[in-house]
């Protein structure tokens, strides 16, 4: 289709370099919460993503096929990098163990570090996340930690060897957008590694806004999976990410809260 060629034009021209790979889609997609694995597969396809996250707790960890935990059968590792996440881990020890098991089970040596001991808002534990990141980075994992929007923590994780940082815009599943905007802006300003907004993005406009702010990528799950029509919603997110990224690359005009004065204040100097 003609429109598919142009959909990621700006992103294809400026691919995201992350963990030694280049991604011409800056939309990452989570695979939980879908009404079926088949629906998930179609939505992933429609999103044009090249990176999907999979909760290790939902996959078989012994490397064997399991028809009752077959989420991986619906993903094509040729088209998308499968990024295992450690969701379910309550502390560094559990997350590290899970990450190592995943590699033994045949996952790529990439890990989305998710440690949320709080089961209600699934907010990440900064202390355990840093501990686990230090261990896994030393073992040559490509570590992408899910964190609260804490600029100093982002720097500490960068120093620990993380390949990117993934601050939240709002708690997982809330669809509330980038409520942590002020902190995210500081992270973008200071970080040398890519910044990926990981949670809270509930609408395509939030994704576009994130890209305009200058984040390197966004990760969307609930907003696609829980939508009435996940496939069309995935496509809408893809368009929004390209729009926001292209706008950022093209130079946005400054926003003003009031009209510019028509009579210049410094005209008397001419």
């Amino acid at each position: 289709m003609a429109d598919d060629i142009s959909i990621n034009r700006m992103q294809a021209a400026h691919p995201l370099k992350l963990g030694g790979r280049a991604f011409s889609s800056r939309l990452f997609v989570g695979t939980g919460k879908f009404s079926s694995n088949e629906m998930m597969r179609q939505a992933v396809d429609a999103s044009g993503t090249q990176l999907v996250t999979v909760a290790l707790k939902r996959a078989p960890l012994d490397g064997k096929k399991d028809p009752f935990a077959d989420i991986l059968d619906f993903l094509d590792p040729e088209k998308t990098l499968i990024l295992a996440n450690t969701s379910g881990a309550l502390n560094a020890e559990e997350a590290v163990r899970l990450a190592r098991l995943a590699v033994a089970a045949g996952f790529p040596k990439w890990v989305k570090l998710e440690i949320h001991p709080d089961p209600n808002y699934l907010l990440p534990d900064p202390i355990e996340t840093l501990k686990a990141a230090e261990i896994l980075a030393k073992e040559d994992f490509i570590v992408l930690p899910y964190i609260n929007a804490d600029p100093v923590l982002a720097l500490r994780l960068q120093e620990a060897g993380c390949a990117a940082v993934m601050p939240l815009g709002a708690p997982i599943g809330t669809n509330r957008g980038i409520e942590t905007r002020a902190q995210i802006e500081i992270i973008i300003e200071q970080a040398q590694v890519p910044v990926v907004i990981d949670a809270g993005i509930g609408r395509p406009s939030h994704a576009a806004q994130a890209m305009e702010l200058g984040v390197d990528a966004v990760l969307v799950n609930t907003a696609i999976a829980a939508a009435e029509n996940p496939v069309e919603t995935a496509r809408a997110f893809a368009l929004a990410v390209e729009a926001g990224f292209a706008a950022r690359r093209s130079g946005l005009g400054a926003m003003h809260t009031r009209a510019e004065a028509t009579s210049p204040l410094t005209g008397f100097l001419d």
Partner: peptide
């Protein structure tokens, strides 16, 4: 499944 819901059999791993 017929009602549009995914039955999740595995949602935890004792290796945690």
């Amino acid at each position: 499944r017929e009602g549009g819901l995914e039955p999740v059999w595995k949602d935890f791993d004792a290796s945690l």
